[in-house]
Write a protein that binds this DNA or RNA. Structure first.
Lengths: 221, 221
DNA sequence: GTCTATAACTAGATAGAC
DNA sequence: GTCTATCTAGTTATAGAC
């Protein structure tokens, strides 16, 4: 799922590669290592819970390197959040642009393999005061979830045009419901320390959506 | 690790009010003020983001008072989380035990007035590593959400028995969906800094649930 | 570019006066 | 019971050597 999250800690390579670009071979640059460890730590501990020191230690670099490449904690977090949000979009698009009926594509999105107990690395950020209070840090979250709701709505609307889904369904509202079920599923699962509530929420949503599939288009009927 | 047990020292409290009870008139005890400010701060900033110092300042008491009444930050947080979770149960039960059809009761729960952009004070805690990693601190969240899913499932099952809802509906799964929509709605709304996505998610869920209402029981048909 | 040293500040808790 | 020091460790950043 998250290539950016692989904890590759090879020997230090001193130079090369244009900024922002991972080196083609297996040895990431210092900047790249800083970004990746920030992505991991933001996911695990959130913004307030992530200290520059922890980032440096995980990346295996000194203080100076971090402040050379980034202005500070928030600048590093911004870059990490942007990348995480982009990665999430790419993964979601994979399911939503797959072949099949609208129902099948939404089903694919909902049933995609997830590390449920770790939660959503993007949704996680919405619970961080410092993030939502900063327009810059919040922007990638807003963009990602706005895109997601729009994209699911497109899929549903397409299904309606094809006669697969009931005409009365509101694509935009149901898209928000689908996105919310995933985010809320993470919350329920983490509270229970068990992924079962997440799976139940998804199954419930799928069963409700399945009732919107028109008889003619329902291959299981 | 976490010996965040509720301090029994409160039993030795020489002041009037019985433990855990706010004094009847408008002047809350020191203990009560500490609890309330902790509840507020946990909601706003989460566990890691809340310092004892901030609690003291908001409560208007000194360091010594806090450590007299509570063993430390985690003990105070545990008491605050327990109370918040209990309050949430009471508020939800109000909607779910109201008169009306199963659909109407779930609708009442979903449309209940909420401070959407502030998020859920209980759900908020599931994003805090220190909370979910401590069995003691996580327990009230687990209990609250477990109760909520069970209670909604009861309402739905009752609706089925009364012939209001389709027999094919899985009460337990749909209950998880309903609870998840609320929690996920908060996430979408905070990302957008706008309560509209929350409302859309709720409307989508209600429209899908409405399709499960049997024609005979549908007063709007 | 990367490192270590250091500084100003906050977190979380303790000690002891009153 | 409540208060004001005080303490150790961690946070966030800057300075300057290599």
């Amino acid at each position: 799922m998250y290539s950016a999250v692989m904890s590759t800690r090879e020997a230090l390579d001193t130079q090369a590669a244009p900024p922002g670009t991972p080196s083609p071979q297996g040895t990431p640059t210092t900047q790249e290592r800083l970004l990746r460890s920030t992505q991991e730590l933001l996911w695990e501990r959130g913004y307030v819970g992530t200290s520059p020191k922890a980032i440096l230690e995980r990346a295996g670099v000194g203080q100076g390197s971090m402040y050379h490449h980034f202005a500070g904690k928030s600048a590093l977090a911004l870059a990490a959040i942007r990348r995480t949000a982009e990665g999430m979009k790419a993964v979601a698009e994979e399911s939503l642009s797959a072949p099949g009926t609208a129902y099948e594509r939404v089903e694919g999105y909902l049933l995609r393999e997830r590390q449920v107990l770790r939660g959503c690395p993007v949704g996680r950020m919405t619970q961080d005061r410092d993030v939502v209070c900063s327009p810059e840090l919040r922007q990638p979250l807003d963009e990602m979830f706005g895109w997601l709701r729009g994209r699911i709505a497109e899929v549903l609307a397409e299904g309606q045009r094809r006669g697969e889904l009931a005409a009365g369904l509101d694509p935009s509202a149901v898209a928000a419901t689908v996105a919310a079920v995933v985010q809320g599923g993470y919350v329920l699962a983490r509270a229970a320390d068990d992924s079962a509530p997440f799976d139940a929420a998804v199954q419930g949503a799928l069963s409700l959506l399945a009732a919107q599939v028109t008889p003619a288009a329902d291959s299981t009927a």
